[in-house]
Design a protein around this nucleic acid. Structure first.
Lengths: 244, 244
DNA sequence: GCAGTCATTTGATTCAGGTCAAGGCGCGTT
DNA sequence: AACGCGCCTTGACCTGAATCAAATGACTGC
């Protein structure tokens, strides 16, 4: 899960894939335009299977995909929630070590992996950006370990809602602290991302709702009336660049 | 925590820092030799502080360093145990987002960061290797999330002992499955790495000892009489490349 | 508008691991 | 060899989250 830094660079991109950025680098975009293709994936469908040959790398355009690993006895851990502008895949490697699944309907922008690798080799700029992205992802993955290893259920949920608020949230006109977003994951997926059971995830969501930290509308709309209050729950240092 | 792949390349290196490898690339080594310096750090001493300017990057030569993040209320999560050949630091960034501390006496091979960055720019080979290492570290960090999010205390300890066996262990002559290594971390540090309390870490070590999965000699020597048995405890797929 | 299905909520109970509290023992020092 | 400091172990108890079990609610297709 990437840092907000790079995303800001690309905020106005017509095509929001981060590995290459139309807004920043029109020349390289042109090259990549020629090898890209879009694909739509239905909710719950696999995108990549762990260990299988990975013919493409991809960027999420709309929707959400989930990166997960499952133990033999069925326990699942979601390692990453990939949202619009996130990059999925691993150049220079034949296989991907995780399952990637559509959390809802997803649109991907795909690149044939070999062709993408060729571009990496030729264009230091793209290569450097990929390194930077990967380092960001590494920081984010390590930050997530703090959530999994040391936070209570309520804090985990708060941290996760905060992450989604920052990535997907739209502030209310006239009140920048009031954020609305559409929850892309089921309770089960939230639980799998946070190392909880779905019952605990649901209970903590209910508790946060009781305490006025969130509101919900229908199944998927979540409103955070006061982002600051949620940050306090999540033990998040206000700058927000570190935890996911 | 890196994959074993690259380490194997460097098994015979006189100097075992992975970002550059004397065995593989004598030319680049020569350049790096000129900007490197060794330093010894005493047990428990800080190496880098989170958020502070990072003037150097470094490789662990002997001993073990620990990468950690601490919440305001003192809860600590260890994000990585850096062992000989591991690379610490983050090119292109002024600060490091984690505390790095010597888990015992540590020898580092340090490079002035700016000089190292210049070499990265000039030498695609080193740059490519850094990307590859970072991608490995990312996979490892994500694998670790499975341990933190979904494994029971006993499994976590087993997974951790397995990691150390693979990185530090020496097989007994005539019995490749019997591994001995020196535990570089205190019970408290083990607990902080695994999201447990030190009491639970200690109890689970005792339980594994009772069950014959490990033996201990003195404070720090750990013997794994049968690596296979430990793998079963840790839910580890036998290839061993994925979990840490 | 209605039925059916699946996600979600909520309740009751259990249990793994956390917390609090003593000891014990390895190891460096004198 | 004895001392003392930390680290480690073990015990008793408690609590937060898991488990088991319904019931309710939201969106789907008819």
């Amino acid at each position: 899960m990437p840092s907000p830094k790079l995303r800001e660079n690309c905020a106005d991109c017509p095509i929001r894939y981060r590995a290459v950025c139309a807004y920043c680098e029109p020349d390289e975009l042109e090259v990549l335009e020629r090898i890209k293709s879009y694909s739509e994936i239905a909710s719950g469908q696999p995108i990549f299977f762990a260990g299988e040959p990975m013919t493409h790398v991809a960027s999420v355009v709309t929707g959400a995909a989930v990166l997960s690993r499952t133990l033999e006895d069925g326990r699942r851990q979601i390692n990453g929630v990939m949202l619009p502008s996130d990059f999925i895949g691993r150049p220079w490697r034949e296989t991907i070590p995780f399952d990637v699944t559509a959390a809802g309907p997803v649109t991907l922008c795909r690149f044939e992996r070999k062709a993408f690798e060729a571009i990496l080799k030729e264009t230091p700029h793209v290569s450097e950006r990929l390194l930077s992205m990967t380092l960001d992802d590494l920081d984010a993955a390590r930050d997530w370990a703090v959530v999994l290893g040391r936070m209570a259920a309520r804090e985990r949920i708060a941290a996760f809602l905060l992450f989604l608020s920052r990535r997907l949230g739209k502030p209310t006109p006239g009140n920048a602290q009031r954020i609305t977003f559409s929850m892309p994951l089921t309770r089960e997926a939230i639980a799998d991302a946070l190392g909880l059971t779905l019952e605990t995830a649901s209970r903590q969501m209910s508790a946060l709702r009781r305490d006025g930290l969130i509101e919900t509308e229908g199944r998927s709309t979540v409103i955070v009336p006061d982002l600051t209050a949620l940050q306090d729950e999540a033990q998040d240092d206000a700058d927000g660049s570190d935890i996911l």
